[in-house]
């Protein structure tokens, strides 16, 4: 079992990096989802108050 630790280190680093990246991405995505829902609710409230907002379906042009 010569050089076992090299093999172990290589596979551990690869899996740890991929796992951490995916976990980080997931946590960011769930935070973004909360923000999007909050903004959508705010926009809907503005729409109900008669402000005639630009809807998410027809948002102002993205620069």
């Amino acid at each position: 079992m010569d050089h076992f630790w090299y093999l172990f280190a290589a596979y551990s680093i690869i899996f740890a990096a991929i796992f951490l990246y995916v976990a980080f991405m997931w946590s960011r995505q769930s935070k973004l989802e909360v923000e999007v829902r909050a903004l959508e609710a705010k926009l809907a409230a503005l729409g109900n108050s008669g402000a005639n907002p630009a809807t998410p379906e027809h948002p102002p042009a993205e620069s």
Binding site: L39, P53, P56
Partner: peptide, 12 residues
């Protein structure tokens, strides 16, 4: 989408 919504809110 978040940026678009923020702009739509400012406009509204």
């Amino acid at each position: 989408r978040l940026r678009m919504l923020a702009r739509a809110i400012i406009l509204a």
